[in-house]
Design a binder for these strands. Structure first.
Lengths: 256, 256
DNA sequence: GATCGCATGCCATTCAATGGAATTCCGCCT
DNA sequence: AGGCGGAATTCCATTGAATGGCATGCGATC
């Protein structure tokens, strides 16, 4: 069965990058014989591989076809040179994320090894309501979806401070009108994040671009124009025809 | 059936990034009803998505799990900062590739937008015998595998010039003894490629790191030490314990 | 040296995949 | 407008493949 195969693949996570057959069997709640048969098929095809210790790991061939995903690698391909430009200017972190369900998915990250703290990993998920890229994506999502998120009890992620839905709504409006999201964080290390929307061919926001710098490194005021300009240039490369937002005056909620 | 599912996924290629159901059906030689059922399952799971036109494309979720592949994204994660260093020095192309079967698979590429010609894409395959990274990987592959490759009729890829197996064997020996591969190419645009091996925890070569610059930009002589040093630093990050190669004197063929 | 857990092979049962035919939908050409 | 052709989709009886319990061999651990 095919759901079994996917269950096998999803058994792998960031902190479970390699699994034995027995582990796979337990995690997916499948009898060992079935698991073995399936794992073999996947190995044969290249979706899984066995590492030096005989443990199962995600395979190169799966990555190869996944590299054709337009919203991930396809986007990245176009964005990377622009990200490099930002990277050279800041020499800290440059992030590119798209929305998937109720999370932001980090599609690319450039980081100097002299840069601060490791943040999120490429391929990992970020909360929408407490990161720069997340806020940008949320601010430009369909209103219905925004309501759904706003209806939940939210907290600022690392600190655990509760976040009122009214305050968040105000933030989103401001993000739409200014064209950037600015997040200042004290924990775990003081930093500024500045993020801007990236638009696709039909004008809708398809991704968010961001830089993250330690507090004192550069003022968000200075970074914002660079972010806006770079995101706009990237949008143009993606086929976004006309000039951008033309933000609804007063930050009206229902725009779409 | 699960092979059907993989057939569906492999129907996507670089120049077929999006497919309609009918196209999928034709390419995989599967009846439309079966194809539809399967495609739906894959969409449900996130391995496929439908784009704005309703065409099927590779999905974000597949990319997400694929980002756990140790030999692809896992490697890249460690390598990227080192690649950045090389990139800053040359501002052209920096490549990272691993071997998969009889090809090199390009795991990462940094390129300035001012850089020359587009070469190969990330996620794409390169020939082993006529690229810098490929030669490095081939030179450090198991002897049996080398023989297999050497037994074939080979040509230098872009020019179509035949390549004698004796000459290639000599090249491989030199690559092993010098620690770098140097490829000078006239077609389609004059360029130099310099590549060096990256070693994993148990000392075997797991990847190849390379820079590609236009002829006249920088001499391979100058680039080689930088490549060797960076590849070695990267190897150390990967857990390669001891100092590297200690090349077999005289470039003996059977080393393993 | 014995035991436990893991990887693996085997096989009768059963359940789910299969694809042909019919239907609807949509875009294009006349 | 009208109608044609291809694509997407539904349905269902048939068939063929997935299933998992059990037994075996293997290796590590106490």
């Amino acid at each position: 069965m095919i759901d079994r195969a996917f269950a096998l693949l999803t058994a792998f996570t960031e902190d479970r990058r390699s699994l034995t057959l027995a582990e796979l069997s337990r995690v997916t709640d499948t009898p060992p014989s079935t698991t073995l048969r399936l794992a073999r098929r996947l190995v044969h095809w290249g979706a899984l591989e066995r590492d030096a210790d005989g443990r199962y790991v995600v395979g190169l061939r799966l990555w190869e076809v996944a590299s054709l995903a337009p919203r991930a690698h396809g986007l990245r391909r176009v964005a990377l040179p622009y990200m490099e430009d930002l990277y050279e200017a800041t020499h800290q972190h440059v992030l590119l994320a798209v929305r998937d369900g109720t999370d932001a998915l980090l599609v690319e990250r450039l980081s100097a090894h002299t840069a601060i703290d490791v943040l999120y990993r490429v391929g990992g998920r970020l909360p929408l309501h407490s990161t720069g890229v997340g806020l940008v994506l949320l601010a430009h999502a369909e209103p219905d979806f925004q309501d759904e998120i706003l209806g939940q009890a939210l907290t600022h992620e690392p600190e655990g401070v509760p976040l009122s839905s009214a305050a968040l709504r105000r933030s989103l409006a401001e993000i739409r009108s200014t064209g950037v999201a600015v997040v200042n964080r004290a924990e775990p290390v003081p930093l500024h994040a500045v993020a801007a929307p990236v638009r696709g061919a039909d004008g809708e926001v398809v991704a968010a671009l961001s830089v993250v710098v330690p507090a004192g490194h550069a003022e968000p005021r200075v970074l914002a124009p660079a972010l806006r300009a770079t995101a706009r240039a990237l949008s143009r490369s993606l086929g976004a025809v006309t000039a951008p937002p033309a933000p609804a005056p007063g930050g009206l909620r229902r725009r779409q």
